[in-house]
Simulated assay, not measured.
Amino acid sequence: MNPLNHVAIIMDGNGRWGLKKKNSRNAGHRAGLHSVEKIIKETIKQNIQYLTLFTFSTENWKRPKKEITYLLNLLENFLVDKIEDLHEQNIKLNIIGVKNFSKKLNSILNISEKKTSKNTKLQINLALNYGSKFELLNAFKNLNKNNEKISEKNLKKYLQTKNIPDPEILIRTGNTKRLSNFLLWQIAYTEIFFEKKLWPDFNENDYIKIIKSFKKIKRNFGSI
């Protein structure tokens, strides 16, 4: 049976769900938070150590300003409301990406990370203003700046996931089959599951089904 330490998720389909159900993309983003909470609980039940959630990409800045503002306010309010609960559950919050948000949101992110930094039950990596191409370019720039030899070992030191094991599973909801500039280096040998359901409809049973399927896969990593 395959060991499972890290699950990464592209939570796609919130906006489409909102338009379909409530005639509002923002309603879908709000509903998506309920799925986040369900998956966090199930991740703990499954004794998985790392959960990485693609929350806001570098490309998401292209969206309408009103939607961006709503998304970031939603994140801000979620952390203010839930950080104590996450802390009590022994959950560590870690941000990957570039924190160039408002002073208020940056402060909330920093406080949340600091408060939960010693927790050990589950590490949730929020990919915020994250893009894998930027991450890789930045890693190469640092190698060059520090006059280091280009090697896999040295490059990994400068990735934003440098202390995090690569995910064994990547799930993308929303019936879209692409990676969208997410963890391109880290998922070289990750098992990828594309789920038809939109993110707000994705539940614990869907998650468990994927985990069970993963555990039956013969993983060769290039060998026979």
Rank of each mutant, 00 (worst) to 15 (best):
E37D: 15
E37W: 08
K38T: 15
I39Y: 07
E42F: 07
I44N: 09
I44M: 11
K45V: 10
Q46F: 04
N47A: 08
I48D: 12
Q49F: 12
L51V: 06
T52R: 02
T55N: 08
T55D: 00
S57K: 03
T58D: 06
N60K: 01
W61S: 11
R63A: 09
P64T: 09
P64N: 04
P64V: 07
K65N: 13
I68T: 11
T69F: 12
T69I: 13
T69E: 14
Y70N: 11
L71Y: 04
L72F: 01
L72P: 01
N73S: 13
L74W: 07
L75R: 02
E76L: 07
N77H: 06
N77G: 07
F78S: 12
F78G: 05
F78H: 09
L79V: 03
V80W: 00
V80L: 15
V80K: 15
V80S: 06
D81Y: 07
D81Q: 13
K82M: 06
I83A: 01
E84M: 05
D85C: 06
L86F: 14
H87T: 07
H87M: 03
E88S: 14
E88T: 13
Q89H: 14
Q89Y: 07
Q89T: 12
N90R: 08
I91F: 10
K92V: 00
L93T: 01
L93H: 04
V98K: 15
K99W: 02
K99R: 13
K99E: 11
N100P: 01
S102P: 11
K103P: 09
K103C: 05
K104P: 00
N106T: 05
I108L: 06
L109F: 12
N110G: 05
N110V: 11
I111E: 14
I111W: 00
S112Y: 10
K115P: 00
T116G: 02
T116K: 03
T116N: 03
N119S: 08
N119M: 07
T120Q: 15
T120M: 10
K121G: 08
K121I: 03
L122S: 08
I124K: 06
N125Y: 02
L126C: 02
L126V: 05
A127E: 06
L128E: 03
N129M: 02
G131W: 01
G131A: 04
S132I: 02
S132T: 04
L136M: 15
L137D: 09
N138M: 08
N138A: 11
A139K: 02
A139M: 03
A139V: 05
F140A: 14
K141C: 08
N142S: 12
N142T: 09
N142D: 14
N144H: 14
N147W: 00
K149I: 15
S151I: 08
E152T: 13
K153P: 02
N154D: 07
L155Q: 06
L155G: 06
L155T: 09
L155Y: 08
K156S: 15
K156C: 07
K157H: 10
Y158M: 04
L159H: 04
